[in-house]
């Protein structure tokens, strides 16, 4: 083949990924967008605007639902100062959604702590991610990756206009500085959401029916939407293998579960996505 490299059209340079982070809900949220390459039109303002919208959404939800804020509506409900009947539409909407998930998971996911206090925090972060995604799309942002404390929702591609997936890594629970594996999000089977729950971290928000402990130290669920992924990951950690089988039978999800002895269980779809 003759050397015509000088005449070849320059392949468009890969767009840079730019990230913005902020703290909310006790964790760190990262929004990553591809931006135009140097020489183009760097839409830094657009990234700032998009991040501001997401941050505002998380903060507003945290104001209502945080049990760490004594003045929040959730805290007033927990204290009994407020009845659910008199609660805001936002509160009742999430309560209804949480109860629906409790039914669907046959109790493996529940919005009530063992002491009876209503705690929707297991759902609110995923809800905030979902709402942020809707807002970003409404802003006209088609390509982004949103990570809230280890739960990931993506849209489009890191290379806009291409089919390149957003490669996400899954933490190795036995060595938290290392990755167990990775999965291409927004590609192939169309899983755009990845949520991971563990029995070791933040054990306070997963209440296993068997108080003796979970069969799984970590469960990652891939789904089309982040709420399904997050709720099922939590439910499987709490409900063990029976809940894992219910999840893979009843929802279009893929799962990677790490047993407490370190052995792995994965759905055929997960295996296919990794290889």
């Amino acid at each position: 083949m003759p050397r015509t490299s000088e005449n070849l059209p320059a392949t468009p340079p890969r767009p840079l990924l730019k990230a913005r982070t902020f703290q909310s809900m006790g964790t760190v949220i990262s929004l990553t967008l591809p931006v135009a390459t140097p020489g183009g039109n760097p839409p830094d303002d657009e990234l700032a605007a998009a991040a501001a919208v997401v941050e505002r959404l998380f903060r507003d939800l945290d104001q209502i639902f945080s049990l760490y804020r004594p003045d929040s509506e959730a805290s007033r409900l927990a204290r009994g100062d407020l009845s659910l009947r008199a609660a805001s539409a936002a509160m009742r909407g999430r309560y209804e959604e949480a109860m629906a998930w409790r039914l669907r998971t046959e109790g493996a996911f529940t919005p009530e702590r063992p002491d009876g206090v209503l705690d929707l925090s297991g759902l609110i972060k995923a809800h905030a991610i979902r709402e942020s995604g809707t807002s970003l799309l409404a802003l006209g942002r088609a390509d982004w990756c949103l990570n809230a404390g280890g739960d990931v929702l993506v849209s489009g591609s890191p290379v806009p206009g291409s089919y390149e997936p957003w490669d996400a890594g899954i933490i190795d629970p036995l060595a938290r500085g290392a990755l167990l594996t990775g999965y291409p999000l927004g590609h192939g089977r169309g899983h755009e959401a990845l949520a991971t729950s563990g029995s070791a971290e933040r054990g306070d928000h997963i209440w296993s029916a068997a108080a003796s402990g979970s069969e799984f130290m970590q469960v990652s669920v891939l789904a089309k939407d982040i709420v399904t992924a997050d709720v099922l990951a939590t439910a499987i950690v709490a409900g063990g293998v029976p809940m894992l089988n219910r999840a893979t039978d009843g929802w279009d999800v893929d799962v990677l579960a790490v047993r407490t002895d370190g052995r792995l269980l994965a759905t055929p779809g997960f295996r296919a996505g990794v290889s």
Partner: peptide, 8 residues
């Protein structure tokens, strides 16, 4: 990898 998933 562009993003990391793990327990919260």
């Amino acid at each position: 990898v562009k993003s990391i998933s793990g327990a919260t």
